[in-house]
Amino acid sequence: MTTPKIELRGVKKRFGPKVVLDGIDLVINPGESLVVIGGSGTGKSVTIKCVLGILRPDEGKIFVDGEEVTHINGRARDKVLRKFGMLFQGAALFDSLTVWENVAFGLIQGRGMGRRQARDIAVEKLAKVGLGSEVINLSPSELSGGMQKRVGLARAIAADPDIIFFDEPTTGLDPIMADIINDLIVDTVKDVGATTLSITHDMASARKIADRIAMLYKGKIIWHGPVSEIDNSGNPYVDQFIHGRAEGPIKMEVRG
């Protein structure tokens, strides 16, 4: 049996009295693309932030390549983080830097690469996501939402990471641009051979990029299985979610 790329065992996280993660168990195998679906506020982003060490879980353990990373800090944390790339929901580009400096940031600051070499790699990665050399010296605020997502994707793959996280990659894009981004994600992931974890509530996107889907509800994984089985899950929560019905077992907490 191979070591899972990422494993979460009984991860719990609460903010004050509000329990966000209530014992998450999740395994992602090497080269696999797992998509976590779930409504807004069910803890999808918190799960990702716990794995990255941006948030600390209250209980449970997290493993990356079989090594426990739940409580590591400083250099050990940096070493683990070098395996990761991440595309943020709003792209989270640094608005004080140009497009190419954004893409090259992890290479220059995180790995100490020279600026000229890093710039060449940035141009190459930008070309991979369909952006030409005319944008490299622009500032992120001069780009459209779809182009910002592309730059964010180029930044996520710049250092050829083993693992890439996608936080709502298609949110805020029109359906055509969303599909283009989905295609880019599938292509770039195949290209670098990375393991990916995505979170989304866009089912079209989930069906396109996932090998396996897991559904998060009230801080727990209530269903997981291959993408082909999502329509026959036999789980009323999953059925309600994938068909986007207001009626069903999931009660939206309209009042937070």
Binding site: K49, L52, G53, I54, D78, L81, R82, F84, G85, M86, F88, Q89, G90, A92, L93, F94, D95, F105, G106, Q109, G110, R111, R155, F165
Partner: peptide, 17 residues
């Protein structure tokens, strides 16, 4: 602004404190 647009989290993921 960097905090609410997740730029600070992005710094962390790029191995920069």
């Amino acid at each position: 602004t960097m905090r609410v647009t997740e730029q600070i989290d992005a710094l962390t993921t790029l191995a920069t404190n």
